[in-house]
């Protein structure tokens, strides 16, 4: 006897279609808003002369981290500039910054809520597992009917893909706060809000920063992949090199991604350490 195949794909497609038609006004609004954000951040970063932005970033590295990182950042950025990849690098950076910002803005309250409510915790953790293990490309497909080809779709997919660590680490950080300290705060009559702001969040900050660091790294990798659905930036340079079979160009863009990744990673890590 033949067991009929379960039309899982059809159902999901039907659901997505319904969502897109039902909420087209909303999605179009979001799309326009996000695109404006992307454009203005891009424009202002590109309005600065290359050397000026390079100096600002190096200075930032020096202030937050070390002179070594400052020198490394300056050298790396100079190489990107020299290779003629400055503007794609800015476009990628913009996407990462915006996607990370949105992801963190959503992740913090969700992570806090999951830490404070056992019910929510049991609901959210499997959802996070699902989000993280689903192959990254799959998010790109529904993004298109919602937001069309381009950078907005890229950000949508990136936010979903990169958000889980920020949620997870926020929850973990808050749950790790020793019970004695919670008890001490209670004993002095702290409200829930005071406990959160004065004890739980400050003590979990290093852990939360570790989560944000991971979110940034995931966002960068996704933004590069999102070139497949028309996101601008270093990813599209790689994509073009593949189509034209020019490995040299591909590697140059790839190296630019690596430099950007290392810069963002070291910078957020030292931000975390300086807070401890």
């Amino acid at each position: 006897m033949d067991i009929p195949r379960i039309p899982l794909g059809n159902w999901i497609e039907g659901g997505l279609n319904w969502l897109t038609s039902e909420y087209s006004l909303v999605t179009r609004g979001i799309s326009r808003f996000t695109q404006t954000g992307i454009n203005s951040l891009n424009d202002s970063l590109m309005w600065l002369p290359e050397w000026a932005l390079l100096a600002i970033i190096a200075l930032l590295c020096w202030k937050i981290a070390s002179i070594r990182l400052a020198i490394g950042a300056a050298a790396g950025l100079a190489l990107i500039w020299n290779l003629g990849l400055w503007n794609p690098m800015i476009e990628t950076l913009t996407l990462v910054v915006i996607a990370t910002f949105v992801a963190v803005v959503i992740a913090l309250p969700v992570g806090i809520a999951a830490a404070l409510s056992e019910r929510l915790y049991r609901l959210i953790m499997p959802a996070l597992d699902f989000m993280q293990t689903m192959p990254a490309f799959v998010y790109l497909i529904p993004a298109i009917p919602f937001f069309g080809i381009g950078s907005v779709s890229a950000i949508f997919a990136t936010v979903i893909f990169s958000m889980p660590p920020a949620i997870r680490f926020t929850t973990l950080g808050i749950r790790q706060v020793p019970v004695e300290l919670i008890e001490a705060a209670d004993a002095y009559g702290a409200t829930r809000g005071q406990k959160l702001v004065k004890v739980q969040l400050p003590l979990s900050l290093p852990t939360i920063m570790a989560g944000i660091n991971q979110t940034i790294m995931l966002a960068l990798s996704m933004v590069v992949i999102a070139a497949m659905i028309g996101a601008d930036g270093l990813g599209s340079e790689v994509w073009r090199a593949i189509q034209r079979l020019r490995p040299g160009d591909g590697f140059e863009a790839g190296i630019a991604v690596v430099i950007l990744a290392m810069l963002l990673d070291r910078l957020t890590q030292s931000l975390r350490k300086s807070r401890q």
Partner: peptide
């Protein structure tokens, strides 16, 4: 209860329970 704790009770703990930050 919060008001009562604030007005009436201070507590010192065995393992100090100081805020490390």
């Amino acid at each position: 209860l919060l008001e009562c704790r604030r007005r009436h009770f201070s507590m010192v703990f065995q393992n100090f329970a100081l805020f490390p930050h």
